[in-house]
């Protein structure tokens, strides 16, 4: 059995609850044990790095120091947390930054999307596939931090990533190539400058719709929140009905492997995926 230390992060306790539930659910089916990091604290994203370069390293370092008490790898589903952990690791290991809670740099920080789209994991998933997602047309939307900056993420095809496409294809869906995979969703501008936010998400969603996709698959909690929970506002801005379910890749993995809780995860979405999945005979 594979074991990880697990860092859910703040969003996964709230607006991205179904991401947490589906990561745990899928791990369960794949015989992966997730051991939640003891008394973890916020990684600081995005405000710490925005105005305080000291907190930007100190806040993630406390969590990394806790993770270093065991020799397990640290699994992180949230792209913002992952990015801040990698940035702190870089400052500590490459630039010799000292922190209040010393971190030696021995934890292997794994982004959940990278881990689950690794071929060795896909092979395990394929063995447990009970409901291939045939007939489902999807575009994969990576956003920013799952791929950039490549100095930290080590993603090779950072301008046109394909690892999530490959995973979703292996689940049986038809994955449509498109040009907006790594455009920015506006992140926290959703709260501070909704006018700018609507332009950014409006373009991404209308281009996704244009491809003929039934849904958008994401690997970042911020992207999911921005594309799903504000879709009505974006539709008003565009003057166009979109009705595009925004699904986590882990939810589709759970669906294809027949996890019993998928219905519960989908109920948390603002754009209801059930009519689509029912029409495709997947629910």
């Amino acid at each position: 059995m594979k074991e990880f230390s697990y860092f859910p992060g703040c969003s996964l306790e709230g607006t991205s609850k179904e991401f947490d539930e589906s990561v745990r659910g899928v791990s369960d089916l794949l015989d992966i044990r997730l051991d939640e990091l003891d008394d973890w604290s916020c990684c600081g994203a995005t405000s710490a790095h925005c105005i305080d370069e000291n907190l930007a390293v100190e806040l993630p370092a406390r969590n990394l120091a806790i993770a270093e008490r065991t020799d397990r790898d640290l699994l992180v589903p949230c792209a913002s947390c992952y990015s801040r952990f990698k940035a702190a690791e870089y400052e500590i290991k490459e630039n010799g930054k000292k922190t209040s809670f010393p971190y030696k740099g021995n934890v292997r920080i794994r982004f959940a999307l990278d881990y689950f789209s690794d071929q060795s994991v896909i092979e395990e998933v394929k063995k447990k596939l009970v409901k291939p997602l045939s007939g489902l047309k999807a575009v994969c939307y990576y956003g920013c931090l799952p791929v950039r900056p490549p100095k930290l993420t080590r993603i090779k095809n950072y301008e046109n990533p394909t690892h999530m496409d490959h995973l979703v294809e292996e689940l049986g869906a038809e994955v449509i190539p498109w040009s907006y995979k790594t455009d920015c969703c506006g992140a926290s501008l959703m709260v501070t400058r909704i006018d700018i936010f609507k332009k950014l998400v409006g373009r991404i969603l209308s281009k996704a719709k244009e491809t003929g996709a039934d849904c958008v698959v994401v690997g970042c909690s911020m992207c999911q929140m921005n594309l799903d929970t504000r879709q009505e506002d974006v539709e008003q801005e565009l003057g166009e009905k979109l009705n595009l379910p925004i699904l986590y890749y882990t939810e589709l993995m759970g669906l294809a492997m027949g996890h019993r809780d998928v219905g519960k995860w989908f109920k948390r979405h603002f754009v209801d995926p059930l009519p689509l999945l029912n029409a495709k005979g997947l629910m």
């Binding site: 995005t46 790095h49 925005c50 920013c144 931090l145 950039r148 900056p149 490549p150 100095k151 950072y158 790594t182 920015c184 506006g186 992140a187 926290s188 501008l189």
Partner: peptide, 8 residues
């Protein structure tokens, strides 16, 4: 928005 397209 710290999207890192420029840095990349």
């Amino acid at each position: 928005a710290s999207c890192y397209a420029c840095s990349t």
